[in-house]
């Protein structure tokens, strides 16, 4: 299986924050979600991967062959967009098309026009154009997505694409990811960061969990759901169960949390109910443990 990205020992230092050392492989042909609390380093990692921010050390290999993020081949292959103010606010659909058709090889005005209509944000060929500053946050995000999807790329890297979208648009975004990957016959991949885990689960094949600038867990979602279990039980058994769990919440009557599947037998002996967690439950459990470990 080809890797969309292979990250080897990447470190980026700021005065008050250090990303890394990051080691990861983003599998090609899948959608990968970057999950973490605010300030975990998701945006910094995405910026480093897309050449928006330089790194202090380490290496990134793109599509198993390219390593220069500054090369036009990498720039043309990656469709990146951030969640806020990706384009100047006085631009409209027409200026975006004018800029992008020169800024990247493989930008299709026709596709951009089609996507703008599909996302109900107007038509870049219209005489009257609405500036981005006059659009709602949701429509601005739709515009960024239309722009980036109008390019012929091998990897979409989107920073918080779902944050300003309504539930229907989030659902559409999941479909778009699926279509994008399917159209590429296994050669296209998606990497996105998100806080809307429940809404984006359908579009997530692989998950990378981050905390404090480091990767704390990663793997295919289905494998992670085998590795971890969701545990429920009554409060009187909570103290014994707690020691076998990686994250725990409880009240005077019952408790719930995530545990490693290896502890399933011992937890079952405590009259607990065990089930397969969804990505949201898994994420909360893993991130809660990271937060606790960090204290």
């Amino acid at each position: 299986m080809e890797n969309a990205l292979k990250i080897n020992g990447v470190v980026k230092k700021y005065n008050d924050f250090t990303l890394g050392e990051i080691n990861a492989a983003i599998p090609g042909g899948f959608a990968t979600a970057l999950i973490g609390a605010n300030g975990a380093g998701k945006t910094t990692l995405i910026d480093v991967l897309c050449g928006v921010t330089g790194k202090n050390s380490g290496e990134i290999v793109y599509f198993d062959k390219l390593s220069d993020s500054d090369s036009n081949e990498v720039r043309n292959s990656i469709g990146y967009c951030s969640s806020a103010n990706f384009f100047p606010l006085d631009w409209n659909l027409k200026s975006i098309a004018a800029s992008m058709e020169i800024g990247f090889d493989g930008f299709s005005r026709e596709r951009f026009s089609q996507l703008c209509k599909k996302f109900k944000i107007g038509d870049p060929n219209d005489r009257k154009q609405k500036k981005l500053m006059k659009m709602s946050d949701g429509n601005r995000m739709r515009t960024y997505l239309a722009a980036v999807l109008s390019r012929d790329t091998k990897l979409l890297v989107l920073d918080e694409p779902a944050s300003s979208l309504d539930p229907l648009a989030r659902d559409m975004l999941c479909d778009i990811f699926r279509e994008y990957i399917a159209d590429g016959n296994g050669k296209r991949s998606v990497l996105f960061s998100t806080h809307n885990i429940a809404d984006m689960e359908y579009a997530t094949d692989y998950a990378i969990f981050m905390a404090g600038g480091k990767i704390i867990e990663q793997g295919f979602v289905e494998d992670l759901k085998e590795k971890y279990i969701l545990v429920h039980g009554e409060a009187d058994k909570s103290e014994q169960a707690k020691n076998l769990m990686i994250s725990y919440t409880g009240n005077s009557t019952n408790f719930e949390g995530i545990a490693l599947a290896d502890n399933m037998v011992r937890l079952s002996q405590l009259d607990t109910a065990v089930e397969k967690p969804n990505l949201q439950q898994l994420s909360i459990g893993i991130l809660r443990k990271a937060e606790k470990d960090g204290e």
């Binding site: 910026d47 050449g51 500054d70 043309n76 103010n85 100047p88 631009w91």
Partner: peptide
Amino acid sequence: DKVSPGGKYFRTVKGGFDT
């Protein structure tokens, strides 16, 4: 700047800093 509107977009276009 990176935080200015368009700042991140301009860092990804062909030619990067040279453009």
